[in-house]
Every structure is written in structure tokens, then in C-alpha cells.
Nucleic acid binder design. Structure first.
Lengths: 109, 109
DNA sequence: GTGTAGTACTCCGCAATGTGTAGTAGTGTT
DNA sequence: AACACTACTACACATTGCGGAGTACTACAC
């Protein structure tokens, strides 16, 4: 099945969630998301999401050189990011609960 | 908050779920979805989803006149629709569980 | 009867966002 | 030299939910 549509609007939340566990750069966030079970996330989606969140003022950003490859652009949650994470998580939980009820309802007939 | 992005890919599932409880026409499906908690669903989205699902071969369709207004276009699940519902529900549950774990994880620091 | 509200549906263009592909660039391995 | 892995950027594209306008039918108020 195609999970790409399910990710819409949730990838932001997922990225914020993994960044809560510590600053990370794009490629690293991608690996963490996949390790968490979001195996089908495309790299371009993660980079795009990080850029969007940064532009929205939810993330800090700093570049750091690496001895094992190209430079890395780290991102971390700032105050706004933490707020956004909390708010989005709440919205998501409410939404997921609603869907859960809808799906578990049995037919009357 | 804006839940419209969260609906992406899930509205299909929600519509299939309410149709499992009995055939329905667009306006009726809309009311059922809102009653179930999806208050912000737009009517055009529901009509569009029904058309898409019908075109995908998941729904049966028949028009019935109404004495209290315009005619109604009823939709119902066929075999393919039931299969799609079961499959989509499974995908959704897996996805929701993954997100749940991601969100509940606490930072190590 | 004209206006307004509720029901019921269609069509069109828009916006948000995840994806694929291509490209750049550094490091290490064969 | 060729290749693979790391790391990021940019662009065009597909999907899909939404807003607005339009059509049409019934019923009730004025």
C-alpha cells in the first residue's frame, strides 16, 4: 500500500518528535524516522520538511563540518518548535482517536 | 489548527467505514462523518472521494428520488470496497501505532 | 409569488505537501 | 578510475482536500 498520503501533515510532527530526542541533520533524521517504523519516507521529503519548519521559526540551524563526509546542517527545536510539537501531537491524538472509534464501530445489522 | 492535511489519504478510509454501516448518499455521508467527530470535512471532499472510490470499483451506485428534495445518489460497499476497507484499516492502524510510539518516546537526556 | 433556508450534487481552479530525478560534493573502498 | 555511502539542493509532478460558483428541488415565511 501507499503510505505517502498518510504522511501528509504528519511528517512535520514526526520530524519534530525525533528532534525532541536531540539535534540532528537531515540524513540523520531520515535514518531515525525509518528506524522508528516510517520506512517509506523519502529523503527529499525530510529535507523539505526541515526547511519548512525552519522557515516557520520552529527550528534552530547550524552547519558543522564532518570528517567522514560532506558538511552537516544540524537542526534543533527552539521554544516555538516545542510548542508546535505539543500542539500538533494533541491534534494528532484527537484525530487518531476519532478514526479509531470510526473504524471499530460495528454495523447494527 | 488545520486538520485538512491530516485527512489526506484517510478520508477514503473514513468514507468506507461509514458506508460499512449502510448505504448512503453524499450529503448523508457528510453528516455521518461530522457526527463521528470529523467536523471540518468539506462537502466537496466527500463528493470527490465517493466519485474516486466508485471509479476505483470499490462502490456500487444507484440514484433514488426523494420526496423531500433533489434526487439522491446512493453508494454502497461491494466486495472490493470491503477488501479495500480492511486493507486500509490495517495500514492505518500500523501507521497510527508507529506514530504513537514516536510521540510517546521520552528523551534520554 | 418572491425570498430564504435546507437539501443534494457538480465543476473548476487552488494550495499544501510528499515523491522522483538529477545534480553537486566529500570520503573511503576496491 | 569506478563505485558506494554520506549529505544536501532544486525542480517538476501527482495526489487530494478545499473554497466558491452554479444548478435544482422542496418548504416555509413575508
Amino acid at each position: 500500500m501507499d503510505t505517502s498520503q498518510l504522511l501528509k501533515g504528519v511528517l512535520d510532527l514526526a520530524v519534530l518528535a525525533v528532534l525532541r530526542d536531540g539535534d540532528g541533520y537531515g540524513y540523520d533524521v531520515l535514518r531515525r524516522l525509518r528506524a522508528a517504523g516510517l520506512e517509506d519516507v523519502a529523503d527529499a521529503s525530510v529535507y523539505g520538511t526541515l526547511r519548512r519548519l525552519f522557515q516557520a521559526g520552529a527550528l534552530t540551524s547550524y552547519v558543522q563540518p564532518s570528517e567522514e563526509g560532506p558538511h552537516r546542517k544540524y537542526y534543533g527545536l527552539n521554544k516555538r518548535g516545542h510548542e508546535l510539537l505539543a500542539e500538533s501531537a494533541k491534534t494528532w491524538n484527537h484525530f487518531a482517536d476519532t478514526m479509531s472509534v470510526l473504524l471499530s464501530k460495528k454495523e447494527a445489522a
